[in-house]
Simulated scan of single mutants.
Amino acid sequence: MHLGSLLALTPLLLFSTFVQAVDCDNATNQGDMNRCAAEQNKAADKELNALYQQITKRLKDNPDANKLLVGAQRNWVAFRDSECKFSASGVDGGSVYPLIYSNCTTDLTQQRVEAFKRYLKCEEGDLSCPVPGV
Rank of each mutant, 00 (worst) to 15 (best):
I100G: 00
F15N: 06
D61I: 02
K67D: 10
N49F: 03
Q53F: 09
Q40T: 00
R58M: 02
N41A: 11
R118H: 10
C129V: 12
R74M: 08
T109D: 14
Y119P: 01
E39L: 00
A37T: 00
L12P: 05
A37K: 00
L12V: 10
A21T: 04
S5W: 13
M33F: 05
Q20L: 01
Q54D: 04
C122D: 00
N75C: 06
P132F: 10
Q53M: 13
D64N: 15
A8T: 10
E83I: 03
C36E: 09
S5Q: 15
S89Q: 13
L108N: 07
V113W: 10
A50D: 03
Q73R: 06
T17W: 00
C122Q: 03
T109S: 15
K57A: 15
D126L: 09
A27H: 04
A78F: 08
C129W: 05
N41D: 14
D45R: 04
V70I: 14
A27P: 07
L3D: 14
C122L: 05
F116L: 14
Q111P: 14
A88H: 00
P130D: 06
E47I: 03
L127C: 12
G94C: 06
K121N: 13
F116A: 07
N41W: 04
G71T: 13
S102T: 02
R80S: 15
R58L: 03
E83L: 12
L51G: 02
V77G: 10
N62C: 11
E123M: 11
Q40Y: 01
V96P: 05
L68R: 09
V96H: 06
M33R: 01
A44W: 05
P132S: 10
N26I: 13
I55T: 09
L108T: 01
G125S: 13
Q54C: 04
Q110V: 09
Y101L: 00
S89G: 15
L48A: 08
T109N: 11
A115D: 11
Q110A: 10
D81H: 03
S16Q: 05
A44T: 04
N26E: 12
S16W: 06
L59D: 01
W76E: 12
T28N: 08
M1G: 13
L108R: 06
L68Q: 14
D126S: 14
R80Y: 11
Q54L: 07
L13K: 05
L3N: 11
K121I: 13
S87Q: 15
Q110P: 06
K121T: 13
V70C: 10
Q20P: 05
E123T: 15
E39F: 04
L59Y: 04
C129I: 04
E114A: 14
Q30G: 04
L59A: 05
E47R: 01
D64Q: 15
K42Q: 08
D23L: 07
R80I: 10
L99Q: 01
A88F: 02
K117I: 10
L14M: 14
T17C: 06
K46C: 05
V91M: 00
V19E: 03
V131F: 04
L51C: 05
I100M: 02
L48G: 08
R118E: 12
S16L: 05
N103R: 07
Y52P: 03
V96T: 08
